[in-house]
Amino acid sequence: MALTPCKSCKHQVDTSAEVCPSCGVRSPGVTFLQKVFGFVLLVLIVVVGLSMCTSSKKAKAAEGPAQQSAAYSITKDDFREGRPRKVEVLLPQRLSDADLAEVAKAIRANTKFKADKTFIGFRVEGQTESTYWANASFDPDYKSSLIGLSVQDYQTLKGLNLKAYPNRIGSWLQDGALGHVMVLYKKNDKYLMDSIFASGGKNTERYVGKKQADGGLRLDDPETSFNEHYVVDAKGNLQAWGENGVYMTLPPFKPVQ
Rank of each mutant, 00 (worst) to 15 (best):
C20F: 11
C53N: 13
Q68G: 02
A66V: 10
T31L: 09
T31V: 07
L50S: 11
L44N: 01
A70L: 07
V36E: 10
T54N: 11
M52V: 08
F32S: 06
S22C: 01
G49S: 14
K35D: 07
L41Y: 00
L41C: 04
F32K: 10
Q68T: 13
A70H: 03
L33A: 15
S69V: 14
K58D: 06
V48C: 13
L44S: 05
G49P: 04
C53F: 09
P65L: 06
C20E: 10
S55K: 13
C53L: 14
Q67G: 07
F32E: 11
L44D: 00
K57Y: 02
V25N: 03
A61Y: 04
R26N: 08
A70F: 03
P28S: 10
T31C: 08
S51K: 11
M52P: 00
S55V: 10
A66D: 09
C53T: 14
L33E: 14
V40R: 02
K58G: 01
G38Y: 06
I45Q: 06
S51Y: 07
L44H: 00
L42P: 00
V48M: 14
Q34W: 01
V46K: 01
G49E: 11
S22L: 01
I45W: 04
K58I: 10
M52F: 07
Q68L: 12
A70S: 13
C20L: 11
S55Y: 11
E63M: 13
F39A: 09
A61G: 09
P28M: 12
S69T: 07
A61H: 09
S69R: 05
L44M: 06
A70Y: 03
Q67K: 15
G49I: 12
P65Y: 00
C20I: 05
F32W: 03
K60D: 12
A70G: 04
L41W: 02
A61L: 13
T31Q: 09
K60A: 14
Q67L: 15
Q34P: 00
C23N: 09
Q67P: 00
V47F: 12
G38I: 02
G38C: 04
V46H: 01
Q67M: 13
A61F: 06
V40A: 12
L42E: 05
